[in-house]
Each structure stands twice: as C-alpha cells, then as structure tokens.
Nucleic acid binder design. Sequence first.
DNA 1: TATTGTTATACTCTATAACTATA
DNA 2: TATAGTTATAGAGTATAACAATA
Lengths: 154, 154
Amino acid sequence: MNDILGNQNPLERHLGYWMRLVSNEVSNAFARALADRQISVAEWVALNHIASRAHSTSSAIATSIGMTRGAVSKILDKLESKGLVSRVASADDNRVQTLSLTRDARRLLPKLTAIADANDDHFFSVLDESDRNALRALLQKLADLHQIRDIPIE
Amino acid sequence: MNDILGNQNPLERHLGYWMRLVSNEVSNAFARALADRQISVAEWVALNHIASRAHSTSSAIATSIGMTRGAVSKILDKLESKGLVSRVASADDNRVQTLSLTRDARRLLPKLTAIADANDDHFFSVLDESDRNALRALLQKLADLHQIRDIPIE
DNA sequence: TATTGTTATACTCTATAACTATA
DNA sequence: TATAGTTATAGAGTATAACAATA
C-alpha cells in the first residue's frame, strides 16, 4: 500500500524515511513497554552497560551512549532512587565511582530483557528468517561502513 | 567490527537495535544539516505537507504526523514567523485555515530537498543498487505488515 | 593542570486540557 | 454539541558550563 503511488511523496523517495518510519515504530513500542515498568530507554541501556562489565563507570556510559556526563549523572540518580544501582567510590581513584546493580536490579533485568525480546520478536517475526538475516546484514553493513559507534537512546 | 564478538551484547541481538543505530545516524545528520538553515525536521515535514496538497490544514498535518493540534500550531507559528507559511481563513468554513507557502518558502524548499537528497545519498550510496533495493523492499514490507502510518518526525 | 562526577540553568519539544470562535 | 485552532501549563530529556574533589 505504501508504494501504490510509486513513492511520489518527496519524503518517501528516501531510504532514510523508511528507516525512520520502521525504527520509530519498534522503538516507541519498546519505550511504551518499558514505561509500564517505570523505566526509560536510557535507563535500560545504562542497566545493561553496568550488567555487562565488571567495573562500569559514569564516564564510560557517557562515552558509550554519546551523552554528556551531566545527563548520565541524572540517569544514575534515577536508577539509584529506584534502588537499582549503587555507586561506590573506587579504591584506586577516589574520583571514580564503580557502578553495580542491586539485587532488585539483577532480578528485574531478565524481565526487561524478556520485554525487549518480545518486542523485537513481535515486530520482526512477520518476516521469514532469510529476510531477517538479510535485513540484519544490511544494517550491520551500514553501521560498519559508516563506523557508527554510539548506542542509540532516542 | 560491530559483530566481531558475535553480538554477545544483549542489545545487539535485536534487529530493532540495529534499526535504531542506523536510523539515528541518518536522521541526526539530516537534522543537523537542516539546522544550518534554522529549520527543524518537524518544520520540514510540515512544509512538504503544505507543498504537496492544494488545501493543507493544521488538523490534517496533525493527523498525518501523529502530533497534537497544539504542537502543530506552534510549528506553524514558527514557520509563519520565518515568513515561510501563511494562514488564510477558509471561505467555506471560518474555523478552518488554509495553509500555503510563501514565495520565500517556494524558493527555499528545493534547497531543502537537495539537502535531504544529498543526506540520503551520502548515507546509502555505500550500498550497491541491489542492496538498496533489498533494504527498501524489506522496510516497506515491515511498514505494510504493521500498517505504520504516521510520518516520522523524531 | 587534567579528570570524575555533580549541579544550576536553560532550552527544545511535546502533551494535556482549557479556551475562543465558529458550525 | 462538535470541530478548528490557540494558548497556558507542565513535564521529559538533554546540553552547557561552572563547580568540588581528587589525581
């Protein structure tokens, strides 16, 4: 249906338009699902960052997701106030705070991962496996060729 | 490089992650290019809406891009203050305002279109034509199957 | 001097909902 | 009553830049 007019609409000529259209749908659905648990996408990304490495720090997260240290500080404030993250001054360097997940967060994270899996599955299972593989290959190729690094938040 | 670890990162397992990563890169680059002309993406979409139909109205734009009438009203305020859009009360129904582009806007729009074309080209020309066609087909298939309608702004 | 992290401030974007005026 | 559009208000999210503590 979308191309029944031959993409006459000037916007629809662009691949970037279709990328955005589809990407927004998946991401917004995920953001809504997370919001039911009072978690923002930025918080979800931060939790994953902390979970997946031994000594996560505020600066490392900022670099990784391409946000300022100030913004990350606020995200960590929220996670701490929800009892999900604790900040402990590093023994090596007193300026540095080592971040870790609380017991509650370790219990919560698998549920959030299940939500993410379900969201992705719901959206992409309408394609067969070869289409999904083709899409993944094309997206990774673009990411590689343009050397995209920041983990997407928005 | 991105999959050298076999996508061990829990986020990277999701196709939605790669969609977002790539989509943000294209969209942010476009937003920055528009910003050089003091135009937001929402304004660009509104300008195109008005340009591509005879009697565009505020409500129609709101429906089309999935924003509230209040938000669209502000976007039109900005476009009007920039001398790009004029609002004229409809003869048929005095509640309705017919929107039209000013002479300045008609001069500007082709330049903005060129910026959009260049941005899309820069990003996707790293793929060969068959890859681009495949990507377009996959994205349109997803948009069709999920009946996505709103023109993406964010 | 440089770096880690926090904070004060401001800005952009958008929603909600009350409002005016027409119909 | 319903609709088109505006406006007042509020909230989320993020950047900038100054700051304190530490290296």
